[in-house]
Amino acid sequence: MNARILAAFLLLAACGDDSQKTAVPGVPGAVKTLASVRAERRLFDGAPPVIPHHDFGADCISCHTTAGMSVPQFGFAPPAPHDPEQLQGAMSRCRMCHVFASKEPAFADNDFVGLRQDLRAGKRLNDLAPPVIPHQTLLRENCMACHTGPAAREEIRCPHPERERCVQCHLPQQTTGEFSR
């Protein structure tokens, strides 16, 4: 069952295929990929996404700029969610974590079922409190990268991007489940 779904995703994960894109509400002309495609690009939620396009032979940051960039024929190149300063240092070798996807058949079948996290999982203290951050913020220091702009999924789009200091109101939720000391 799972293998079949994965296989179906595999076929669908083609980059640049417009049938896998959906319009961004309120942003004329902008498109983004379907949530199912997003899932296929990660082994599990929290894993670094694979690179869905071919190797342009260019520096990643020439399109994945701090604000992101629309690339004709390909869609929107989202900005990296990593600390912009560390992108010049510890995080400067993108391909250390992000590798190119291909349609190469599997070497062997695999039964792994990854964690899939509801994107709206941020809990609130009460109905009106701002949601806490339901994921680790390490390596995701640039909230705007995923929560604003054409790349942001509707369900997690920030309604007030003008308030720049997100963690002022949204607390990182402790989900680490510390092992016993």
């Binding site: 509801d118 709206r120 609130r124 109905d127 009106l128 309604p159 007030h160 489940g177 092992f179």
Partner: peptide
């Protein structure tokens, strides 16, 4: 507007990611 937006988002965790034992 924030409050309305906040209310519209249901609290749910169907995958129970927080149930993972780390």
């Amino acid at each position: 507007r924030d409050c309305a937006a906040a209310r519209d988002l249901p609290i749910q965790d169907p995958q129970g990611h927080a149930d993972l034992k780390w």
